[in-house]
């Protein structure tokens, strides 16, 4: 490829997103500033790469790089793996049963709540809370062998004790909200007299997994 042709290709690919600025061009940076910024860019991009590659499954090298850039990730809030929806999983739903010391009947708190007023983002935050509890409980079980050692479950329970006066004990459980099989849904919809398919049917909830009993007093 001739030098001119090569230059043409390069300009088509490499041209800045804002090329052809109608307002003219400002001054460029001095060489020393470019060199300094260049070093910073290399470090930053390496840190990003370490962040996306460093989660399981990862090689020892990738894990080491992730660890090495840990402080950088922590300070600049980087190091995320961005592996969204690798396999859309069943949704963990956290359910707390509240026992009261004054004889009131038990209450149930669900995360995420079925009906949340206001912006849908509130629901998304509660979904994240439930998912975090699920992950933390799993980690507690792996690390200590006792799922009730989940610190997040204790913290969530304390929150409920605080906002529900008279609550004596909070029992946390996690239940998996399953995703129905496509053929199962199609058959259900095609059956005579079938209405809408209920995604909240009892059959779509797995057996609740007990996380722990957390008393409100005398922690």
């Amino acid at each position: 490829m001739s030098r001119r042709a090569r230059a043409g290709v390069e300009s088509r690919i490499d041209a800045p997103a804002g090329d052809g600025a109608p307002g003219g061009s400002g001054p460029g940076w001095p060489p020393w500033a470019c060199r300094l910024a260049g070093v910073a860019i290399v470090v930053h991009l390496s840190a990003l790469l370490a962040g996306v590659m460093g989660v399981a499954p990862a090689s020892p090298l990738e894990r080491a790089a992730m660890e090495w850039f840990g402080p950088y990730h922590a300070f600049f809030d980087l190091g995320y793996s961005y592996r969204f929806y690798i396999e859309p999983p069943p949704t963990p739903v956290a359910v707390a049963t509240l026992h009261f010391d004054d004889g009131r009947p038990d209450e149930t708190v669900r995360l995420p709540a079925r009906e949340i007023r206001g912006p849908r983002m509130r629901h998304q935050r509660e979904l994240a809370l439930a998912h975090s509890l699920f992950v933390d409980a799993r980690q507690a079980k792996e690390q200590t062998g006792d799922i009730s050692q989940s610190r997040l479950a204790r913290s969530y329970a304390d929150r409920i004790c605080q906002i529900r006066p008279g609550c004596e004990m909070v029992v946390w459980r996690v239940v998996q909200h399953l995703i129905p099989d496509r053929d199962q849904v199609r058959d259900a919809l095609d059956s005579p007299g079938a209405g809408r398919f209920d995604l909240f049917d009892d059959s779509l909830f797995a057996t609740p997994e007990w996380i722990g009993d957390f008393p409100c007093h005398g922690r």
């Binding site: 490499d14 800045p16 997103a17 804002g18 090329d19 052809g20 600025a21 460029g28 470019c34 910024a37």
Partner: peptide, 11 residues
């Protein structure tokens, strides 16, 4: 050229 050429800040 990629990092240090001036670009339109509109976007």
């Amino acid at each position: 050229r990629f990092f240090f050429a001036p670009a339109d800040p509109t976007a």
